[in-house]
């Protein structure tokens, strides 16, 4: 009855034989079977309960805070949950989170696609394998180390680039720079780009590997150059994979905490310039404000965390949907 429900892409035939399954469904007769089924089904249910609990408790505490909020939670520029009356809003945080993530995506996606192509189509095989392996390992470097490196090494190195941007593009306002340390949203975006590079690269690489050899050879046979092969067969095939990889990276950039908290010098206002220190992100704000927060302050932080949770859920859900759709059609392709 349920053969069609699951795992369309599993290479070996999925699941055990059907008759065995029916017996399990009828209620296994042997006590050992019953206990084992109960344990494993229980774990599955536990995961569901856990997700429900996360949503429920966050909503509950967040609602406690928002009900006392005198300012508009979505548009206020204040963050003063312990004041009388308490006023706090997420406008600045939403702005900072979105802007830094966009910067990270703009930098990381083309470069990751480039590295993925480098590994699969350009590098000598040995070098490609090594690079893939190293990038895999880099995905494991913890964010606190990126933060430490960003704050101590990267920030002083940004001065020259900032000076340039200010000289040549300062008139736009977006790239105006008043001087001062480069602890701004732009630096944060660059650091986030570095942090999400490995994950986007890894997923894109896997997708590019799966491009049917025939497609590429057909293009080559028509006299295409290497770039034309990539444009005509590799990129169209890999497009949805790259999109979902980018969404996974975006999900990570949105929720990144420590690296942002260590690099950014936060403030509660929105400035037109990306280069001047200031701004904040959801996760960074939680980490920096947590220490001095009272219960009310913690509830307000939970409310902002709730918003972050919803945003990442949407982004990740979209990524999963794209991956799932792709699986179906690449299955038909194989």
């Amino acid at each position: 009855m349920d053969i069609t429900t699951q795992k369309p892409a599993a290479p070996p035939a999925p699941g055990p034989a059907a008759p065995e399954d029916k017996r399990a469904a009828r209620g296994a007769t042997r006590p050992g079977d019953r206990i084992f089924l109960g344990l494993s089904r229980g774990s599955g249910i536990f995961v569901l309960v856990l997700m429900a609990a996360i949503a429920a408790f966050l909503t509950y505490r967040a609602s406690l805070a928002i009900s006392k909020d005198e300012a508009n939670f979505f548009t206020s520029f204040e963050w003063n949950p312990t004041g009388v009356p308490p006023e706090f809003g997420i406008a600045v945080l939403a702005f900072g989170t979105i802007v830094s993530s966009i910067i990270a995506m703009v930098i990381a996606v083309p470069i990751s696609v480039g590295i993925a192509l480098f590994i699969t189509h350009y590098a000598p095989r040995r070098l490609g394998g090594t690079v893939a392996y190293v990038i895999d390992l880099l995905a494991a470097v913890p964010s606190i180390v990126y933060g430490l490196w960003g704050a101590i090494v990267l920030v002083p190195h940004m001065d020259g680039l900032y000076g340039w941007l200010d000289d040549y593009l300062g008139w736009t306002g977006v790239f105006a720079w008043e001087g001062g340390p480069a602890r701004s949203l732009l630096t944060v975006g660059i650091l986030l780009a570095l942090m999400i590079l490995p994950i986007i690269t890894n997923v894109s690489r896997e997708v590019f590997r799966q491009v049917p050899r025939m497609h590429e050879e057909a293009a080559l046979a028509l006299g295409a150059t290497r770039w034309e092969v990539i444009r005509m067969s590799v990129l169209p095939f890999g497009r949805s994979g790259v999109i979902s990889a980018s969404m996974l990276g975006l999900g990570r950039a949105l929720g990144e905490t420590m690296a942002v908290a260590m690099v950014l010098s936060p403030s509660f206002d929105i400035s037109a310039s990306l280069l001047d220190a200031g701004g904040g992100t959801f996760a960074q704000n939680i980490a920096s404000k947590f220490n001095e927060a009272t219960v009310m302050g913690q509830d307000a932080l939970i409310a902002s965390g709730m918003v972050l949770f919803v945003i990442t859920l949407l982004v990740n859900g979209a990524a999963r949907l794209i991956i799932a759709r792709r699986k179906e059609y690449s299955g038909a392709n194989a």
């Binding site: 995961v47 856990l50 997700m51 609990a53 996360i54 408790f57 966050l58 509950y60 505490r61 996974l248 999900g251 990570r252 949105l254 929720g255 990144e256 905490t257 996760a283 939680i286 980490a287 913690q298 932080l301 939970i302 965390g305 972050l308 949770f309 990442t312 859920l313 982004v315 990740n316 859900g317 999963r320």
Partner: peptide, 16 residues
């Protein structure tokens, strides 16, 4: 969905 939960949100959940 759980794979994508930011670590700070997991912390906030246990906190609450």
């Amino acid at each position: 969905v759980m794979t994508g939960i930011p670590s700070i949100v997991a912390g906030l959940f246990i906190l609450s």
